[in-house]
Computed example of a mutant assay.
Amino acid sequence: MSGSVERPAARTGLSSVLFVCGMNAIRSPMAEAIARSLLPPGVYVTSAGVRLGERDPFVDAVLAEQGLDLGHKRPQRLDDLEDSYFDLIVTMAPEAHHAVLDATGTESVEVEFWPMPDPSVATGSRDQIMGSYREVRDRIAARIRERLLAP
């Protein structure tokens, strides 16, 4: 089909994924945008934070380098999600992991901890800071390909 992009299949049975970090400002929205671009269109992907954060312009910049964007999406809290059931919840910060484990309790949901550094603590020139964000973006993309795409 001309103009269409062939996407690999998701792992068997995966129909929804939630990515969670501290403020839904950097790591989890990056993961959401990357996963949306790689997973089949039928897989529901979203992200949230334990606390409400502000959209980070460096995230927009490093995603744009890969032809990705967040659109009009704004950070949202885990407690504010309309959907509460996911096949897989991926946490990207210790705070998020503990909050998700507490929130899911005895629910039958798979929770995985993918620790990712917080690039917002980077200092130096704009290029050095962008380098920290790119490193996190690339680590997230590699982990999504490794874990969520069918072999």
Score class of each variant (00 low, 15 high):
Lys73Arg: 15
Gly131Asn: 13
Gln66Asp: 15
Phe113Ala: 06
Ser16Cys: 10
Ala64Asn: 02
Pro57Glu: 02
Asp87Cys: 14
Arg143Gly: 00
Ala48Arg: 00
Gln66Val: 14
Ser28Cys: 11
Ala141Lys: 14
Ala122Arg: 10
Ser47Val: 03
Thr123Trp: 11
Ala141Tyr: 07
Leu52His: 09
Trp114Lys: 00
Gly22Phe: 06
Leu52Glu: 08
Ser84Asp: 10
Val121Gln: 13
His97Ile: 03
Glu107His: 04
Gln128Tyr: 05
Val45Phe: 02
Gly22Arg: 10
His72Lys: 15
Asp60Arg: 08
Glu32Asn: 01
Ser15Trp: 00
Arg147Tyr: 04
Asp87Ser: 14
His98Asp: 14
Ala99Lys: 06
Leu14Met: 06
His97Gly: 03
Leu38Pro: 02
Gly124Ala: 08
Ser120Lys: 10
Leu101Asp: 13
Glu135Cys: 03
Val109Tyr: 05
Ser108His: 14
Glu65Val: 10
Leu81Asn: 11
Asp102Tyr: 07
Pro41Phe: 11
Ile89Val: 15
Gly53Val: 09
Asp102Ile: 09
Glu110Ala: 13
Gly71Lys: 03
Gly71His: 02
Val100Cys: 06
Glu146Ala: 11
Leu88Lys: 04
Asn24Leu: 03
Val5Cys: 06
Leu52Phe: 06
Ser37Ala: 15
Met1Asp: 04
Ala96Tyr: 04
Gly53Lys: 09
Arg139Asp: 12
Ser4Phe: 07
Leu38Lys: 05
Leu88Glu: 03
Asp56Val: 11
Phe19His: 00
Pro151Arg: 12
Leu14Glu: 02
Gly42Trp: 02
Ser4Glu: 12
Ile144Tyr: 01
Ser2Pro: 08
Asp56Gly: 09
Asp118Pro: 09
Glu95Gln: 14
Gly105Thr: 10
Ala35Asp: 04
Pro40Gly: 13
Ala9His: 03
Leu101Arg: 14
Glu65Arg: 13
Pro57Arg: 00
Val136Met: 07
Arg126Asp: 11
Pro41Ala: 11
Leu148Ser: 06
